[in-house]
């Protein structure tokens, strides 16, 4: 008997469960329906308040948040972020079409490094798949558009998120991923990111920048503020 069969047999024996079609059907139905549980009221807000909640929650997590009126403003804000912190004029970025369409050429001294991070990038720029207002969390998905390594190997992670993609709660954000990739399928990685990296492992004293980014800067693109 293989390990698989032995474990499943022991589980069934302990549960006193035979091959019961009713059980099988209940499980299949639950997997299909994916019923929602308790959704906190906190994030169930109209759009403007939802975006404001996202911002205040993210700031509580020690991320910095800027609101910009359109995608065209992003390269200028990125360049300003680097200047203000005396960072080298170079950013790592994936092939996200929304990032590609931005007027980076206007930032003449800014170097764009493409693809996955090699570990020598001070700053990375990503486009989030969405945001979650209830906890100030960003949702990023892996792929050539936004390589996962940028989320963790850079010292400063700048994340662009569209205000229209900010959901009230975690379940709604995950349901969007399901809609995009199909029921039961997922991208290789979904990163839910809530603030910059930190550790409290020495005497419970909280310090930022443990292994991942020391700073998380969020640019909320709100191009239809009254929508």
């Amino acid at each position: 008997m293989t390990g698989r069969d032995a474990i499943l047999a022991k589980v069934r024996q302990s549960l006193g469960a035979g091959d019961d079609p009713a059980r099988r059907q209940a499980v299949a139905e639950r997997l299909k329906a994916a019923p929602q549980g308790v959704i906190p009221a906190r994030g169930q807000l109209p759009r403007a308040e939802r975006v404001a909640l996202f911002r205040s929650m993210a700031e509580k997590l020690l991320a910095s948040v800027e609101r910009v009126a359109g995608y065209d403003e992003v390269p200028g804000r990125v360049a300003a972020y680097l200047r203000e912190r005396n960072l080298p004029a170079s950013v790592r970025m994936g092939a996200d079409a929304r990032l590609e369409a931005m007027p980076w050429a206007e930032q003449k001294t800014l170097e764009l490094r493409r693809g996955a991070s090699d570990g020598d990038d001070a700053v990375g720029v990503s486009h989030a798949g969405g945001g979650i207002a209830e906890t100030g969390t960003l949702l990023l998905t892996s792929g050539p558009d936004n390589p996962t390594s940028i989320n963790f190997l850079t010292d400063h992670h700048i994340v662009v998120v569209n205000a229209a993609d900010i959901e009230g709660d975690l379940e709604s954000a995950l349901a969007k991923v399901r809609d995009r990739y199909g029921k039961g399928a997922m991208p290789r990685t979904v990163n839910l990111i809530s603030g910059p990296s930190r550790s409290g492992d020495i005497e419970q004293k909280l310090i930022l920048g443990a292994h991942g980014p020391r700073a998380l800067h969020i640019l909320v693109v709100d191009d239809q503020a009254d929508g």
Binding site: M57, L61, E134, T135, T137, S142, A185, M186, P187, R188, T189, V190, N191, L192, I193, S194, G195, P196, S197, R198, G212
Partner: peptide
């Protein structure tokens, strides 16, 4: 409220 990184991994690259 959330840990900093909640990571969902499905299969290889």
């Amino acid at each position: 409220e959330m840990s900093v990184y909640t990571t969902l991994s499905t299969g290889p690259r």
